[in-house]
Amino acid sequence: MTTAVQVLANGLLYGSVLSLVSVGISLVFGVMNVLNFAQGAMVAIGVYLGYFVVGQAGWPLIVAVPLGVLAGLALGVLAQRVALYRISSVEPLRPLLATFGLGLLVVGLLGALFTTDIRAYEGPLRGSLNLGGVKLPTQSVALGLAGLAIVGVIYYVVYHSRFGLGLRATTQHREAAASCGVNLDKMDAIAFGLGTAIAVGGGVLLSIRYPAYPTIGDAWLLQGLVAAIIGGLRSILGGVVGAMVVGVVFTALTYVTGNSQVASLLIYVTLGLLILVRGGGVLKQA
């Protein structure tokens, strides 16, 4: 019983970290109809930022994470203008390629600037919490809670601001939103900016537990995509739910099989078969 609770708790914590990736993907897909393959590379930028700002310069996380969110917002808007501006809704494959290229470019630049060495530092909040027999690493708990907090902030922006109203209207129907006076170019830039902000801010958080290297985002990207697809690729809440499902299933499978790679493989194969059997319906309904 304790084991089950332990696995569940670990899975939920992992899921809330994963939601940093899946929510960004859902937000961008919802507004722009673009699967953002650059999300993983943006996480990597955040992890590097965390390594230098928190690990080397010694800034507190409470300053570094908002800094990462703001930097990510600016970077995302810039990246959208450079790579994706007005190609979003023309053909589905072009923006997909653009984000894929953007991701490669970022990984290449990170490698050129900081080499491909693995960089880690002794993060804060080491040790573990013992909650009635369930032991949880303090860092995981902090990551999970802070991840949910970031997602919460984005949720608030999307559901309680004028920008957010425009974003949600665009998600519902691009043309209708445009005819009501929503500036689609602006919405695309904001959506991509917010998605990148979550990724970079989340990356700064992740740096306390995970080392920095250029391709660290790849694994997060794939699991985040799976989570976003399970969540329906439309809403922030869907992204969170998908991430929780993947987090718990992944943790449970890793516990049962004793190998996280086998767990990843099983998840990929299951989702792949699901898409095949439903003829892409999983994606189409989104």
Partner: peptide, 15 residues
Amino acid sequence: TIHLIILGAAVVLVA
């Protein structure tokens, strides 16, 4: 990692 930069830029440009 120059190959990734070249490939990435090429893909973005093509898109």
